[in-house]
Write a protein that binds this DNA or RNA. Structure first.
Length: 266
DNA sequence: ATATTCCCCTGGAAGC
DNA sequence: TGCTTCCAGGGGAATA
């Protein structure tokens, strides 16, 4: 999503902004949004974990989170509003950016620019980026060594590593041959290495496919992610394992679905 | 201090 | 056909 936004937004000026419905996860007021962005030029689109950072002139930013069903679309400004279209930014060049979110678990928040006006509290708790060097086997071994709970839950914790969601945790553990139920303290250095490598691999593969569409996910032009066809375990309950043919199992951990192959993952 | 559970909200699929 | 139940890419507050 960041890459798609980045292809369209930098250099555009925001000429108007409208809150059509402000009761999102963090409620937002019309005046607050306008003050933050109208008249400003978009400099860059960055990301930290699952948060998008739309960098504006004068050291401010809009921090966005898509929650479960949030979407950004970029359309002609004359385009009629879609259902659940909560926020509209009018851009120069006859375009507009729209935030659409049926479940309203997403959020849009003005914030001082990270690294300039101080890191917003929103992002302060996040762990390392999974594709950065500091998410290392040694780091994972250190964290898992002192924590209770199964590895699946640990990897979903954004303070441990920032940006992994349910799909990619399930997929990474399959590729690492590690059971999602295995306790963190029973991982060992070897498995930590494999998990770190698998996390990176899965993310890179999914990025190359433009993400994963299960139900709602679409990018800014309405196209879908193609990693769905590459999923080995996620949403494949009772389907045959791509590696061994045994049936993929579904369990619930910390209230979220976990999918795994009982034969390939130990 | 750390780990499950509950809840936020809507829509779509499956079950009856 | 129509009603009910379950489930969902997340995360934070309330509990245990």
């Amino acid at each position: 999503m960041r890459l798609a936004l980045r292809a369209h937004l930098p250099g555009r000026r925001i000429t108007a902004a409208t809150v059509r419905r402000g009761d999102l996860r963090h409620p937002i007021q019309q005046s607050e949004l306008e003050t933050a962005c109208v008249g400003k030029c978009i400099r860059d689109v960055r990301r930290r974990g699952k948060y998008l950072i739309i960098e504006l002139e004068t050291a401010t930013a809009l921090v966005a989170h898509l929650g479960m069903s949030g979407q950004f679309r970029i359309v002609d400004s004359g385009c009629p509003p879609a259902p659940h279209e909560h926020i509209v930014w009018t851009l120069d060049a006859g375009r507009s950016l729209r935030f659409i979110d049926p479940r309203r678990f997403g959020m849009i928040r003005p914030a001082p620019l990270p690294g300039v006006g101080g890191t917003p509290d929103l992002l302060a708790h996040l762990g390392p980026e999974p594709l950065d060097e500091d998410f290392s086997p040694a780091y994972l071994a250190r964290v898992t060594g002192v924590r209770g709970g199964p590895i699946k839950t640990i990897l979903l914790d954004q303070t441990v590593v920032a940006g992994l969601g349910n799909i990619y945790v399930n997929e990474a553990l399959f590729r690492a041959g590690t059971s999602p139920r295995r306790l963190g303290r029973n991982l060992g250095n070897n498995r930590c290495s494999r998990i770190v490598a698998s996390v990176r691999e899965v993310l890179q593969d999914a990025l190359a496919c433009g993400g994963t569409t299960i139900r709602d996910f679409q990018t800014v032009d309405g196209s879908q992610g193609n990693f769905t066809v590459c999923l080995d375990v996620y949403d494949r309950h009772n389907a045959a394992c791509h590696a061994c043919g045994k049936l993929i199992r579904r369990i619930v951990q910390a209230g979220r679905s976990t999918f795994y192959c009982p034969a390939c993952q130990r």
